[in-house]
Design a binder for these strands. Structure first.
Length: 111
DNA sequence: TTGCTGACCGACG
DNA sequence: CCGTCGGCCAGCA
């Protein structure tokens, strides 16, 4: 029944709310959920989302440095970078150039 | 039930 | 500059 932890649902919810051409970080989502130190759970939730939520724009979620750390989990190392570029985000060597410009913080936007 | 792992982050040497 | 370690929490064998 409703025995599923809100953590996953919260992660999916926030990720879906990420607007086009914007990106966020695992730590930002984790902090928004109230568990700043559990950033790993966020990434892990996205990994599980492939079996439950396939329409999840997880390619807009990167690490604190704006680097595409989880690109390998998208079904293609270049896929994630291509998707971001397709949204107008400049990516070079798996690193988002205008990261702070495209950065979307749920704590500030969804406050 | 215990233990390990994991798409991170920050600190330390 | 780079490598290493701990912390955080939830799912799975």
């Amino acid at each position: 029944m409703n025995a599923e932890p809100n953590f996953f649902e919260q992660v999916y919810k926030v990720v879906r709310l990420i607007p086009y051409g914007r990106v966020t970080s695992y730590g930002a989502i984790a902090a928004y959920l109230g568990s700043k130190g559990s950033a790993r759970m966020v990434g892990w939730a996205l990994n599980s989302s492939f079996g439950t939520q396939e329409a999840l724009p997880a390619h807009r979620v990167v690490n604190r440095n704006g680097v595409l750390t989880g690109k390998h989990h998208f079904g293609g190392a270049d896929l994630m970078a291509q998707l971001l570029r397709s949204e107008g985000i400049e990516v070079d060597d798996d690193q988002i150039i205008n990261f702070q410009t495209c950065f979307w913080d749920p704590i500030k936007e969804l406050y």
